[in-house]
Amino acid sequence: MSKSLGISIAGARCPQCREGNLFSVSLLSYQKLSDVNKTCPVCGANFHPEPDFYYGAMYISYAFSVALVITSLTTINVLVSAPKLWMYLSMVVFLNALLLPAMLRYSKVLYLYGLSKLKYRGY
């Protein structure tokens, strides 16, 4: 039974077989956090189609950060009647530190799914 596209992206699975892990360590590990496996452990798909392929994922990571800043600033403006500068700064720093692992990983996942030539093959 094949996994859906959304579940495969959320689980950081191989775009070709949707079974193998893209990353060698879990999301909760801070060692080698965003190192992508060279190949899929299940189907052998190449996760590094060219040198420095994942540099483009920085743009997706930047978009995640901008969305996080806008969302947190808007939330503070709605919830607090007269917010201080330290509230904005501490909220942005805290949320970025908390969500950085997920933003780094999923920027690479979305970049690989969107721009690689790997297509799903149901085995």
Rank of each mutant, 00 (worst) to 15 (best):
A45N: 04
K84Q: 05
S81I: 08
N46K: 04
Y54G: 04
A67N: 11
Y106G: 04
S24V: 11
Y106F: 11
L89G: 05
T74V: 02
L98S: 05
V93P: 02
A67Y: 14
K108E: 08
S65A: 15
N37W: 06
Y123M: 05
M1Y: 11
D35E: 12
A12W: 13
V66S: 09
V109L: 01
S34N: 11
M87E: 14
V109Q: 02
T71L: 14
S26C: 00
C43M: 02
A82G: 01
F53T: 01
D35L: 12
Y54W: 00
E19R: 12
S34F: 02
S61N: 08
K108D: 07
L68V: 07
K38E: 13
Q16R: 15
L5S: 05
R105V: 11
V36I: 09
I70G: 07
R13V: 00
T71Y: 05
T71R: 14
G20K: 10
D52N: 02
L110T: 08
V78E: 06
V69C: 15
S72R: 03
A63S: 13
I70S: 14
N21F: 05
C40H: 01
P49D: 00
S90F: 05
G20T: 13
Y106V: 04
L118F: 11
S2R: 14
L98D: 07
I7Y: 09
N77K: 03
L5E: 06
L85I: 08
V92G: 01
Y113Q: 08
I60V: 15
R13A: 04
G114Q: 14
P101D: 12
F64A: 02
L5H: 09
T39P: 12
H48V: 10
L68E: 05
R121Q: 15
V109M: 01
Y120M: 09
Y106H: 09
P15V: 01
N46W: 10
C14R: 03
G122R: 04
T75G: 07
P41T: 14
S72Q: 07
S2C: 07
S90Q: 05
P51M: 10
L104I: 08
P101F: 10
D52E: 01
A12P: 09
M58W: 14
S29N: 05
L89N: 01
K117W: 03
L115Y: 15
S116H: 08
A67V: 10
S107P: 06
S34P: 03
F47W: 02
C14L: 04
Y120D: 04
S90Y: 05
R13S: 11
I60N: 11
S65D: 12
A57H: 07
